[in-house]
Structure formats: structure tokens, C-alpha cells
Write a protein that binds this DNA or RNA. Structure first.
Lengths: 125, 125, 125, 125
DNA sequence: GTGGTCTAGACCACC
DNA sequence: GTGGTCTAGACCACT
């Protein structure tokens, strides 16, 4: 499904969260689709199940997945209201990054084009 | 100069780096301008000088400031080559954020307008 | 009759208990009225009969329903003595919740009004 | 500080969360006051530090405490905006409980008096 | 077989 | 010394 980078300073469970979020965000995993069980993923990544558990619990509290005992874990449907706070966080981070890119003399057109190309890809999906 | 947030989960030295970078990026601190010494800043923030030391060392490796022994630390001039790597990091982060915002149904126009307004502010300065 | 939510972290049998209790409490099911058999309900909810079995058994020990072999399960009449324990549990839970609401600065009037409106609805029924 | 009930079916970390929340809600622990360190509490309750860690992390994401690496954990100040969702959850739970009490013939005055007495205690503090 | 809880014991980053 | 991460291994509740 994906691989972890042991040399990365980020905690393993953070890496797992990021990779899983990326799959959900890119629609590679669809709403209500089953994701690997805690044990399966632990085995395939050769890490401890507890670490996966922790990542999954976080993803659940953040609203990306939901877990059903004795059934498995699944991609959660979007909940716009709950995600309003998250949206604001993201916009704030984006402002910081754009400000730094501006400082590095990144041309405005470059960024506009980048965003447009990301949005265009979606339509194709 | 600025304040730290003990409640923030980020390490203190990371917070110092971010605040200092923000001041440089926003041109509040200009090229070759002197920044507070390790001791001065440690005293004004009432934290351990080692923590400031670490932040300054990081900022130096990242090319934002340079230190002159017995003189102090100063804002570094832009070094485009050195900053190419940083630029690529930033673009990658930005892609992630935009992808998540798109997932949350943020309209494209909103983001384009945001970027344009950030760039417009610069001209005025 | 009602639906279950697989995304809910509560076990299915707990959800069944709650829904059934809600129907009894709201007087939608009246004393001595027959409720669906284990098999019927299992089929209509498409879940395992054992799960229903467990829910019904719990409801019986809690005094909400009673079962007659070969006849079915029925809504139990109120048994004040048996329900004294339950009443105390509820009051204790209520105290906790009100304490937390008070901590969140919920105005007292709001809560008093809420309770009055719940009681008023009953009279109308 | 408090004791756990091993016979209780609730997970230990849930019990810890509840007890700690009760102390915060009752203002026995005040804003920015330090709570026992993970290791201290683990030792005094004779349970594993990981279990405390889990409870504290949950309390942090729920906004009741904040943890500072190398310093300890502390009671968080109230954040009304963030707690609006929590308020609505609580009101919903309260409605269920009142409905069941009404079913058990609990007199309305009893509940109104209960709430008033809880609010009165606060003023005295 | 699934998610969830818990213990024991280790190591790291931070201050 | 503090919070945080991780492993290994165990047991439980649920379906």
C-alpha cells in the first residue's frame, strides 16, 4: 500500500497518518471503502500493531476514517461542518508558506498555475 | 520582539525559528540588520540561552541569518541557489495543503484570490 | 422500526437497547404491547440473532421488557421499586452533565427551560 | 488524588479521564495548575505509564489539559468556541436522561431543584 | 479475525 | 525529570 521511511525524524504513526490521508484525499480510497486491518498493515509494514492502532485512532478522531469492532476500519464520508476548523488551519498554514515563497522571489504566476493544475486533475477523476 | 506559546506542542526552539523567519520574510528585519544576541533574547523571553543557541544555529544552516564572532547575528542576504532546496520543500507542502483543501470542497477562486492578495500586499510595502 | 449506525462506536446490542428504550420511554410502545421477536428483528436489521438476543436479555434484567416462552417479548409495566436503582444512576449521570455544562458557562435558565419543555410535551401526549 | 475501580468494566484510561475531568470541572484544579506527571500518577495508581499517557493525550485533544515536553501537564483555560460542539453533545445526552426520568415518574420539581442547587454551589466557590 | 485495552520495558527529544 | 514514541506480547469484547 505504501512504505515508511525509518530515517525520517517524523514518528512512524505520523507517517502512516499522512500516507493514509493522502490516499483518502486523492480519492484513491473511496468513502466507506475498507482499509487494511490493524494487523494486516502492521505485518505488511513490519512494525508493531500498536503503532498502527495509534495512527488509526488519530485518523478517526480527525474524521478521516471510522472503525467498527470485529469488522474493520473504513473511509469516513465528508462532514463539512466538522471540518470547518480544519479548513481554517489549512488556510493559515497556506498563508505562511506563500509568504515565504514570495520572500524567495517565487513568481505569482507559478503558484496560480500550480493550484489550477491541482484542481484540473480532480475534474479528470 | 515576539512571544512564545508554552501551550504549543512545537518545541520552543522551533517557535523561535518560525517567529524570526516571519520577521525576516515580512521584511520587518532587513538584510544585514542585527538581531538580538543569544543572551539578550534569552533574557527577554526568560528561557534558557541554549534554546536560543539551537534556534540560531538552525537559522544559520538554513541561510536566514549569519553570525560574526564577537559582533552578533545578522539577517542574511537572499542566496537563490541555497534556497532552491527550501523552495522545493515549500512547494511540496503547499501541494499537500491545496490537495486537502480541494478534498474539503474549498472553491478554487478562494485560493487564487488569497494568493493574489498576499502578493499585492508586498508591492504596497 | 429503527435503524442502526455501524459507524457508531457503541456495540450493536447497546444501540438496540437504546433505541428500544427510547420507544418505550416515549410511550410509542405501550405496556404489555408485543415487540418484534428476536428472529424478526434480526432479519429486518440484517444482523445476527445472537446480537438481538443479548440486547433483549439486558432489557429484561433492567426491567423494560419481559419474555414469555413461545409467545414473544412484551413491554413491562413500570416497577417503581426495581427502577429506584435506575433512577439513582440517571440522577448521577445528570449531575455530571450539568456540572460540565456549568463549567462551559451554560446559563442556568437554558437548562431549566429545556427540562420544562420536555415535561410539557408529555402532557400533550 | 483519586482511585480507580478495577472491577468497573470501563477501561482504566477512561476512568482516569473522568476523574481528572471531574477535578477540573469542579474547579478543584485551576487553570494552568500543574497536574501529576505521567510517571507520578502511574506510580501512585500502580498502573502502567502508557495508560496514563493515553488518558492525558485524550484530555489534551478534548481541550481539558495541555502538555509541555520537559515541563509537565497543565489544566487548559476554557475555549468557548472550541467547546460549542461539546456543549451540544451534552445537551443531547441530557435530553435522553430527562426523558427517561420522566418515564420513571420523576417529578419535574425534583430536577429543577437539582439543577438550581448545582448552580448555587458554584456561586459559593 | 477484528478493533481495543493493558503491561513491561526501552529509548529519544527537550529543557 | 518530563512528555512522547515504539516494541513485544497478552487478553478481552464483539460478530
Amino acid at each position: 500500500m505504501f512504505q515508511l521511511d525509518v530515517r525520517d525524524r517524523k514518528p512512524l504513526y505520523e507517517q502512516i497518518k499522512e500516507k493514509m490521508k493522502a490516499l483518502i484525499i486523492s480519492r484513491a480510497l473511496k468513502t466507506d471503502e475498507r482499509i487494511p486491518s490493524v494487523r494486516e498493515l502492521a505485518q505488511s509494514l513490519t512494525i508493531n500493531p500498536n503503532t498502527i492502532q495509534k495512527a488509526y485512532k488519530d485518523l478517526e478522531t480527525e474524521g478521516f476514517i471510522y472503525s467498527v469492532r470485529a469488522k474493520g476500519s473504513f473511509v469516513a464520508p465528508l462532514d463539512k461542518k466538522a471540518n470547518l476548523a480544519r479548513r481554517n488551519e489549512l488556510v493559515q498554514e497556506l498563508e505562511k508558506i506563500v509568504a515565504e515563497l514570495l520572500y524567495l522571489d517565487e513568481p505569482q504566476e507559478q503558484l496560480l498555475t500550480l493550484i489550477q493544475s491541482i484542481y484540473r486533475q480532480k475534474k479528470e477523476v
